[in-house]
Structure formats: structure tokens, C-alpha cells
Computed example of a mutant assay.
Amino acid sequence: MAVPSTILLVLITILMPPVGVWMIAGCGPDFFINVCLTLLGYFPGHIHAFYLEYVYYDRREQAREGRFTAARAPGVYSERVQSGGQGYGTIVQPAGTMQ
């Protein structure tokens, strides 16, 4: 995602945390958890939303560098966030390791 889109995502998350979560995680458990946290208080929704965005962008950067994080991030239920948006598709085995 380009820098302007990231800035737009952060601004949207500041105004409406569930919309920011929906943009990166889709309509799933993380979105509904964020809606509940936002209804309980505005700041818990922000903390959860920015945590999901941090995990998403961190995992995305790791995937670009060729590193793979085997451990799941705690409290994140979206596979898209866990993989940094890179988890859809076939994983190609490096040459020489196929059996």
C-alpha cells in the first residue's frame, strides 16, 4: 500500500476505528470485536484497531523481505492480518527442498 493510502487509513481509523479494521481485516471476528470495543469506549476501539494495523504492516514488510513469522500474533483472528495480506495463494518451495 502506498504512503497516501496508509495515511488515509490512519485518518479513517482515528475517526471511526471499526471502518479502519474493516479495510484491513474484512468483515470477520476482528471487525466485530472492534465494534464492541468501540461501543464500550472510544479508546479501546482505537487501541485494537491500531494494533491490527501494526501487525498487518509489520507482517507485510516481513513478507517483502522474505522472512516468515511462524508465531501467530495474539488477539488477531484474521488470516489476512496474520499474513500481512500475503497469505492468499500457493507457497512455492525453494529449489532443492522438494521431495
Results as ranks from 00 to 15, higher is better:
Phe68Ile: 11
Pro94Cys: 07
Arg59Gly: 01
Asn34Tyr: 02
His46Cys: 13
Ala70Pro: 07
Phe50Asn: 00
Met1Leu: 09
Thr90Glu: 14
Met16Asp: 04
Phe32Val: 01
Leu11Met: 14
Gly89Gln: 06
Ile14Tyr: 06
Arg80Glu: 06
Tyr51Phe: 07
Leu37Asp: 08
Glu61Met: 10
Pro94Ala: 14
Asp30Met: 02
Tyr57Arg: 15
Glu61Ile: 11
Gln62Val: 02
Ile33Phe: 08
Ile33Ala: 11
Gly41Phe: 12
Val55Ser: 06
Pro94Arg: 15
Met98Pro: 06
Ser78Gly: 02
Tyr51Ala: 02
Gln93Pro: 10
Tyr42Ala: 08
Gly41Met: 10
Ala63Pro: 03
Arg60Gln: 11
Val81Lys: 00
Met1His: 10
Pro74Tyr: 09
Tyr54Glu: 07
Tyr88Ala: 13
Glu53Val: 09
Pro17Cys: 00
Arg72Pro: 05
Gly45Leu: 06
Ala70Gln: 13
Ile7Arg: 03
Ala71Thr: 10
Leu9Arg: 11
Phe43Gly: 01
Leu40Phe: 15
Tyr88Glu: 14
Glu61Cys: 09
Pro4Val: 08
Pro18Trp: 00
Asp58Gly: 01
Glu65His: 10
Phe31Tyr: 07
Gln82His: 00
Pro4Phe: 09
Ser83Asp: 05
Ile91Tyr: 12
Thr6Phe: 15
Ala63Leu: 02
Thr90Met: 14
Cys36His: 05
Val76Ala: 04
Gly66Leu: 04
Pro94Ser: 06
Gly84Val: 07
Glu61Trp: 15
Gln62Met: 09
Val10His: 11
Pro29His: 10
Ala73Thr: 06
Glu53Leu: 14
Gly87Pro: 02
Leu39Met: 09
Ala2Gln: 12
Met1Ser: 13
Tyr56Ser: 00
Pro44Val: 00
His46Lys: 11
Pro17Ala: 05
Val35Phe: 01
Gln62Ala: 14
Val10Lys: 08
Pro17Gly: 03
Thr90Ser: 13
Gly75Lys: 04
Trp22Ala: 11
Phe43Ser: 03
Ala71Pro: 04
Arg72Leu: 13
Ile24Asn: 03
Phe68Asp: 08
Arg72Asp: 09
Asp58Tyr: 13
Pro17Met: 01
Gly89Ile: 08
Ser78Pro: 05
Thr6Leu: 15
Ala71Ile: 07
Val81Ser: 04
Leu40Arg: 05
Ala70Met: 12
Phe31Thr: 01
Gln93Gly: 08
Leu9Asn: 12
His48Asp: 06
Val10Arg: 11
Gly89Pro: 04
Gly28Cys: 08
Phe50Thr: 02
Ala49Cys: 05
Gln99Pro: 15
Glu65Gly: 08
Thr13Cys: 00
Trp22Cys: 05
Phe32Asp: 01
Gln62His: 11
Val81Trp: 00
Ala63Lys: 06
Leu39Arg: 03
Gly26Asn: 05
Pro74Trp: 11
Leu8Tyr: 12
Leu8Asn: 10
Tyr56Thr: 07
Val19His: 01
Gly85Thr: 07
Arg59Val: 02
Pro29Asn: 12
Gly66Ser: 01
Arg64His: 14
Gly89Lys: 03
Gly75Cys: 08
Val81Ala: 03
Arg67Gln: 12
Gly26Arg: 02
Leu15Lys: 07
Val3Gln: 12
Gln99Thr: 12
Pro44Asp: 01
Val55Pro: 08
